[in-house]
């Protein structure tokens, strides 16, 4: 697989090299694929502090972009900036620019809800709604796309096949979704997002709560998703980043705020000494980062 060539500084990445599959891989100057999402000088401030400072980021079509960095550096916040989920957190101020197909997502004409339907999101813990498997799958589609009841089953089959869950659940679509295993639940959440046919799927450490088998299933899914969509994957697992991403953005903490050290293809990122420090930091087996310690269910909205 040809590594996509990305310039080091995303601000100049309007002239990126063509991605794999382009007609002429040498014609670096001819029309590149337009990035789906671009962030320039993106900063996020809470009431107390600066969470992210001047982030530049590019999400290419049909690519998996990994985001790595130590705990608390603002990876999830960065992800949430890309579909304006930050709007839902009172007291956050987002400055800088995020472009969706070249247009600012903060434009007055942009509907954040429609944006979120086009830029789906998967959380660290699978969030299934009370109700059946089928109800979960069409939860967004019936309301956002107005999917008629007659088309629920065909949609369910399509997206469940896409996330390789169809064989496991096709005979019990009307059973309660929270009886599925956590790994199945996470794939169900992905299916629910895919039912909206998003162009980009944002994933916030989607496998950190899962067993190895489910993790592998999700990683396969990510590989398949990139044939038709873009994926932004926040991960703590550097091996996972190497396995599934086409490029990696590395964040680290500078002066109390998260800053982008580098966005490039994996090998380059890991060659960067700053990123290597970050990587070693992450690789440090700290149990509080992984696994059940991150359970935060039932957290109340404040």
């Amino acid at each position: 697989m040809a590594e996509p060539a990305l310039h080091r500084t995303p601000s100049s990445s309007r002239t990126v090299a063509p991605a794999a599959g382009s007609a002429d891989p040498t014609a670096t100057a001819t029309a590149p694929p337009r990035p789906v999402l671009e962030a320039y000088g993106l900063s996020v401030h809470s009431r107390e502090r600066t969470i992210l400072r001047s982030i530049d980021l590019v999400v290419e079509p049909n690519r998996v972009l990994g985001i790595i960095g130590p705990s608390g550096v603002g990876k999830s916040t960065l992800l949430r900036c890309l579909n304006r989920m930050t709007d839902l957190i009172p007291g956050l101020r987002v400055t800088g620019e995020v472009l969706w197909h070249g247009r600012s997502i903060h434009d007055r004409g942009i509907d954040p809800d429609a944006l979120r339907a086009r830029v789906g999101m998967i959380f660290q813990q699978p969030v299934v709604f009370p109700g059946s498997i089928l109800a979960n799958i069409v939860f967004g589609a019936r309301r956002v796309l107005g999917l008629g009841k007659r088309r629920w089953h065909e949609t369910a089959e399509r997206v469940l096949r896409e996330v390789s869950l169809w064989d496991e659940v096709h005979d019990r679509l009307d059973q309660a979704a929270n009886e599925l295993s956590v790994g199945q639940q996470q794939r169900l959440c992905l299916a629910r997002t895919l039912a909206l046919d998003p162009e980009v799927v944002l994933m916030d450490e989607p496998t950190s709560a899962l067993d190895p088998a489910s993790t592998e299933a999700i990683e396969h899914l990510i590989q398949r998703l990139r044939q038709t969509r873009s994926v932004v994957l926040v991960t703590h697992d550097l091996d996972q980043a190497r396995r599934v991403t086409d490029a990696v953005a590395c964040l680290c903490l500078q002066d109390g705020a998260g800053q982008l050290v580098e966005q490039a293809c994996c090998a380059e990122v890991f060659a960067n000494p700053d990123c290597r420090a970050v990587a070693e930091d992450i690789a440090d087996p700290n149990p509080s980062i992984h696994g059940p310690a991150t359970h935060n269910q039932g957290a109340r909205p404040s």
Partner: peptide, 25 residues
């Protein structure tokens, strides 16, 4: 890129179909 400034998010590469925007009332 929608010059009309409508509230619906426009998707340049995949022109919105009516079903895509239904339910947004």
């Amino acid at each position: 890129m929608s010059p009309d400034g409508s509230t619906a998010l426009t998707v340049p590469q995949q022109p919105p179909t009516s079903s895509r925007l239904a339910g947004l009332a």
